[in-house]
Amino acid sequence: MATVPDGLRRVAVFGATGSIGTSALDVIARHPGRLRASVLAAGRNVEALVALCVTHRPDHAVIADPDLLDALANALRAAGLATVPHAGMAALDTLARDADACDTVVAAIVGAAGLDSTLAALRAGKRVLLANKESLVLAGELMLQAAREAGATIVPIDSEHNAIHQCLPADGDCSGVARIVLTASGGPFRGRSRAQLADVTPAQAVAHPKWSMGPKISVDSATLMNKGLELIEAHHLFGMPADRLDVLVHPQSLVHSFVEFIDGSTLAQLGLPDMRTALAVGLGYPDRIASGVAGLDLLRHGRLDFESPDTDAFPCLALARAALVAGGTAPALLNAANEVAVSAFLQGQLRFLAIPALVEHVLATLPAADAASLDVLRDADARARDVATQALTTGTLH
């Protein structure tokens, strides 16, 4: 393993080939004396992972699919790299815990699959740049408890939560906060009525007007489920109850969130819609470091618009808020059902408007229970997937 210079932060990028991972690597590469990508992990794309390894020379590379270990090892060897190959999710957990492998983890694996490695990093007291919202939705209380007990640091990388993080007092004291307002772009279908959404295609849903994101999160943005999941995240990250969390649609995506204080002051964080800003905040925290993102020219942009979300056309936001209020296993049920629904939609097996219908069906079928342990939450996740899959199989929601 390479010798680590004093002050050099060793960063594991989980989800390295995705949009957040590549943005993180762009920021890391801008600070060679301060940051180093020591672990890179991807799902199944060996070629893309090896290409990143050629550029960034990590100590370790992980492919999630165990069947691809030989392909990864051979490709690294052919590229003349000393990077150690690994495969399987257990390898991610091990490297997340390993003090020599990394001190910072960019948690950008999509879906509930990112939970174990994120928990492993928190339990090891690492700095976690949290981009995997599903793990926090699924097990927020357990994750925050793990971070407190191990002295880990969580810096949220969602642009909205990162904005809130920047607006709150550095000591984390939220006693003076009256309300948090998350902003939403409105997605590609802002302004459409429910009837106008009936024939939406996957290609249309993933064409986000402002952000370059993966297909799953792009669909979540189109349904406003993404904003619903972010409400649940904000509840856990900042200790805010549901009645002090709001959402405003802001199509320019320049104001990333607001924090309203009890003295009548409101602070907002503004910036161009580029994930590298939030990643630079997390990688450099508490210092500010260059991200490669230009400053915001408000004169050129001209205006900032805000409107209330349309929960009739986009009921996922209301479903998520109801799950937040219900608590317990309800957010885990919501998240699992949504993952199944979005996957089915992307595969052409489900209509766009049937996504919230499937989520609602699962929540009605499986009442929320106390989330006493990770096993209880995993069981809720599995049962929600079973109920959702069964509904898809019978075709009742198509």
Rank of each mutant, 00 (worst) to 15 (best):
P251H: 12
I20D: 01
A120F: 09
A313M: 10
A322I: 06
V11K: 02
A12K: 01
L197R: 02
A330H: 10
R194N: 00
L279Q: 03
H208N: 09
V181R: 03
S373F: 08
P215S: 11
D246K: 02
L52R: 07
A207I: 01
V62Q: 11
E360L: 04
S221V: 11
R148K: 12
E141V: 14
T104M: 04
S308N: 12
L324K: 04
R192F: 07
N335I: 11
V62D: 06
M225D: 04
L35T: 08
G15N: 07
V255F: 01
E160V: 13
L272P: 04
V255Y: 03
L144D: 02
P58Y: 04
G348H: 12
L81V: 10
A37S: 14
T183I: 00
L142Y: 02
H86Y: 14
V105W: 00
S343T: 15
V342C: 03
D263H: 13
D243Y: 05
A337I: 04
S135D: 06
L115E: 05
L397D: 05
S221Y: 00
E134K: 03
D171A: 09
N132V: 00
M89D: 08
D220P: 10
S159W: 02
D287K: 10
D386V: 13
S218Y: 03
G7D: 10
I63T: 13
L81Y: 03
H165Y: 15
P273M: 07
A323Y: 08
C316E: 06
L35F: 13
L267H: 05
D243I: 10
V362E: 01
N226G: 02
Q252H: 04
A16L: 07
A234T: 15
D171W: 12
A382R: 15
G111E: 03
L397A: 01
E260I: 06
D67T: 14
D310P: 03
M1F: 10
A330L: 13
L92F: 13
G187I: 02
K210E: 00
G151F: 05
D100S: 12
N338E: 03
F352C: 00
R148W: 01
I63L: 09
L334N: 01
D370R: 11
A113M: 06
A99Q: 13
H361K: 12
P286A: 09
T266A: 13
R179M: 14
G295E: 09
G228M: 04
A344Y: 09
G176N: 07
V249R: 00
V387G: 00
Q269E: 05
A170L: 14
H208G: 01
S38M: 10
G239T: 08
V50R: 02
H256D: 04
A294T: 07
V325C: 12
A341K: 02
E160D: 13
L122K: 02
A205I: 07
S291P: 08
V247P: 04
G15I: 09
P156G: 09
T94G: 14
V293P: 05
A147E: 01
A268R: 05
F314T: 00
A91N: 05
